[in-house]
Design a protein around this nucleic acid. Sequence first.
RNA 1: GGGGCUGUAGCUCAGCCGGAUAGAGCGACGGUUUCCUAAACCGUAGGUCGUGGGUUCGAGUCCCGCCAGCCCCGCCA
Length: 603
Amino acid sequence: MLRLSKILNKKVVKALSRAFPEEALAADINGETLDAQLVPASKPEFGDFQINGALQLAKLLNQSPQKIAAAIVEQLQNDREFSTMFKPPEIAGPGFINITLNNRCLEAEVTQHLQDERLGVPLVNPSPETKEGSRIVIDFSSPNIAKEMHVGHLRSTIIGDSLARILEFRGHQVLRLNHLGDWGTQFGMLISYLKLVAPEALATANAVDLGDLVNFYRQAKQRFDEDECFQTTSREEVINLQSGDPIALQAWELLCNQSRKEFQQIYDKLDIRITERGESFYNQYLEGVIKDLDANGILVNDQGAKCIFLEGITGKNGKPFPMIIQKSDGGFNYATTDLAAIRYRFNSLPNGDEAQRLIYVTDAGQANHFKGIFQIAKRANWIPNGGLLEHVPFGLVHGEDGKKLKTRSGDTVRLRDLLDEAINRAESDLRHRLEEEGREESAAFIKHVSNTVGIAAIKYADLSQNRMTNYQFSFDKMLALQGNTAPYLLYALVRIAGITRKGGDISHSTDKLQFSEPQEWCLIRELLKFDEVIIEVEEQLLPNRLCSYLFGLSQVFNRFYDQVPVLKADEPNRGCRLTLCKLTADTLQLGMNLLGLPTLERM
RNA sequence: GGGGCUGUAGCUCAGCCGGAUAGAGCGACGGUUUCCUAAACCGUAGGUCGUGGGUUCGAGUCCCGCCAGCCCCGCCA
């Protein structure tokens, strides 16, 4: 519909200025335009589009909304092309204009989408130099070395991946960066502790596994909180590491490798592609950040620490809030690293990423932090012309009790356990149903379906919710066979695959499409909305919009499937309906790909 | 104290640039299977959009106040 709505919009703007030439000219002189407010119809009864502008223009034009609407409609009807594309517009209510596409135009649009792999979604305009879309960095996932991935990483990973897929599809060059927590105080803690209790772990590969490391980390953290002496050793150890001490570096590398293997298993399960570039990468740029900030005159020495006082943000005492860039002991902290990362990512190649847009997918609790470092980046003049810095925040994952998700014993839930449980539950659901239906399936089939359903369910449950709100994690709901869930979407695709298997040549091209059933028209209208939804998701970075669209499409398809026979219909209906099935399958498939959801032929 | 987010049906949530009678799903109740996977479809009930003002032709949506819940705020990330 994107193409059609653009054409229509031009016609409406023209009609409005022809209907009211003097006022349009006057507005033009003031640098304004008369706004016709063309939007998609809010309800199917109102057609495909509606023009709301007549109501607002009533005052300006000093006429009744109905009269204005009538004048616009008259101009539209003078447009011959308009009349070939649309049914006669109708004026309704206080002065709305309802516009409905005529059937032939819809049929032509379906034909065009059938030949278009992109289903109407345009590529972004390439920049003249690179001949490609803009370079975008998406910073997501970002687990910490020596800790296991837990629910907290789930949302960032899933949402970040989906946004990356959508931006890539639009033609941007996307750099997916895993800003791994592989540096900092925690390492000092861990290395000092391991020196005491398990020195072999620091010198030999695979001496300990991640589970052990996590335990050591927990113990180290406890010791750190209780033992002042240990705190000092830990801080010294960080400084050793940051200054390149070979023994510390070797220990560090072993620890990282151990964690890396574990992370990769999770990413493989979730089908996440991401480039590792941990905090340590920016170590070599930290000094430069300090110098640069100092040269810009915004660095202040306060109680021995180098900080920047944020403008417009006050701390507890009502004074400007300080952001510490270098601690009094000379160590750097995460703000320094984040600043170095911004500077590097905006910098020109080859000493930077030359990005035009940086997107951070982290929890909403870090909003203040990002506000602060974004302000500093701006004041330090690191943001190029047209450069964008965006924090894409999301809410917490809650359990069904409405509190932060924990295991029964009160620990954080490990991501691997969460995925395994979803898969196991999907498997027992499947086995139960196979038994009920008397179906026999191979072990490989059962494994594949359970895996796909389990992973898709977890991802979809997360993506389908507006990311800003906290979300209630429930295996029962996400795996439910009905409702707005991944299994429901998967099932729609499976039904179409079933039609194909039963002899519907879905690639069969029909010269002339023609439709008659209301359910066919509903399906067509829904299918043609896909392109607009993708653009909207790109603008707002809200994948849940795509989810609701795909759910709605599945619902409309299921209604169609239920009420309109496909294989048993006579030609030409049979062929036409098969092409609708094909287009539905393509749309669902592409939409689910863009969300990072795996799909199935049978389930 | 400062900042942020949230408050919509019994439950979980949508709601786009302010548009027409407020939208789903679950749950509840009732119906549909000679037929392409019933993991589906159809129907019924269910609302003071936290609250009080304001802006205007029109407010769940924008502005201000208040109430409630959650999160963040100096050397952890």
